Simulated scan of single mutants.
Amino acid sequence: MPILDAVLLFLAGFLSGAVNAVAGGGTFLTFGAMTLAGLPPIVANATSSVTQFPGYITSTLAYWHDIKHFWRGALLLSLISALGALSGALILLGLDNPSFRALVPWLLVAATALFAAGPWLKPAPKPEHEAAVGSLVGSLAQFATAVYGGFFGAGMGVMMLATLGLTQSGDYHRLNALKNMLAVVIAAVAILVFVSGGVIAWLQAIIMIPGGALGGYAGVWIARRVPQNAVRGFVIAVGLFLAFYYFDKG
């Protein structure tokens, strides 16, 4: 691997961890860096899932106090999420790179719009009580979100928080904890499918993961000094750049 590509991947991992800690949207950076480094889009997408996974784990552990009060009630949503992620990941592996490449700019535009709308999609505070599994509508919404997460994943957190806010009970922190827990399930199932399909670029992932860990730590420093709107604007600009890049290549 050229040294410049290695530096690009490490920096993308670092920035991804930092922006995830502040505003979310790190997937745009990891996917984009691997694309610019010459990886096929399906491999870049699958490998990005691996690089983001440690962050999902640490975010979930940070909410463990909340999760331990409702995890039994969320098992059904976890099963639904696993089935949805399995479906989405298998759909991705069923495509060839040219077919997926044609979809990527549209996926990026949709994910960027979703990310940009994130502050307006956050659920309103509700009286604090246990997050429940909810209705059939909530289960179907979570399945659809998990399919998207297994297939592409950028903007999944915003989408899931919005749908959970409409269909589940609990205050914002409980919903965010539930979102993090389900994101771990979705990512874990998708990664297992991608590993079995042989579409993970392990060298690139190994370079990016330490950068992401350092970036997540640095995100605390960044959050105290850089306005969140500036970070969100940077992520949106990256998403739009990647979308136009793929439109141009198509």
Rank of each mutant, 00 (worst) to 15 (best):
D5L: 01
V7Q: 03
L9V: 10
F10L: 13
S16T: 00
G17C: 07
G17I: 06
G17K: 08
A18V: 03
V19N: 08
V19F: 11
A21K: 06
A23M: 09
A23C: 11
L29V: 06
T30K: 01
F31T: 02
A33F: 05
M34Q: 13
G38C: 06
P41F: 01
P41A: 01
T47A: 00
F53R: 00
P54T: 05
G55W: 12
G55D: 08
G55P: 14
G55R: 13
S59M: 07
A62V: 01
A62G: 10
A62D: 03
Y63S: 14
W64T: 07
W64V: 12
D66W: 04
D66C: 05
I67N: 10
I67W: 13
I67M: 14
W71V: 13
R72P: 14
L77A: 11
L79P: 04
I80N: 05
L83K: 06
G84T: 08
S87E: 05
G88D: 04
A89K: 06
L95Y: 01
L95A: 03
N97W: 07
S99Q: 14
S99R: 14
V104A: 13
L107I: 09
A110M: 15
A116Y: 15
W120I: 10
L121D: 09
L121I: 14
P123F: 06
A124G: 12
K126S: 14
P127V: 12
P127T: 10
E128R: 15
H129S: 15
L140T: 03
F143T: 12
Y148Q: 09
G149C: 13
G150R: 14
M156T: 12
M160T: 11
A162Q: 08
T163H: 06
T163P: 04
L164Q: 04
G165K: 09
G165M: 08
T167L: 03
Q168D: 01
Q168K: 14
D171A: 12
R174G: 08
L175V: 02
A177G: 11
A177V: 09
N180Q: 03
V184K: 11
V185G: 06
A188L: 06
A190Y: 00
V193S: 04
F194C: 12
V195S: 05
S196G: 02
S196D: 01
G198M: 06
W202M: 04
Q204N: 06
M208G: 00
M208T: 05
P210Q: 12
P210A: 10
G211H: 10
G211A: 11
A213F: 15
G215K: 06
G215H: 11
G219K: 02
G219H: 03
V220I: 08
V220A: 10
V220M: 04
V220S: 03
A223K: 09
R225Y: 09
N229I: 15
R232A: 05
F234N: 00
V235L: 07
I236R: 08
A237D: 00
D248L: 12
K249A: 08
G250Q: 01
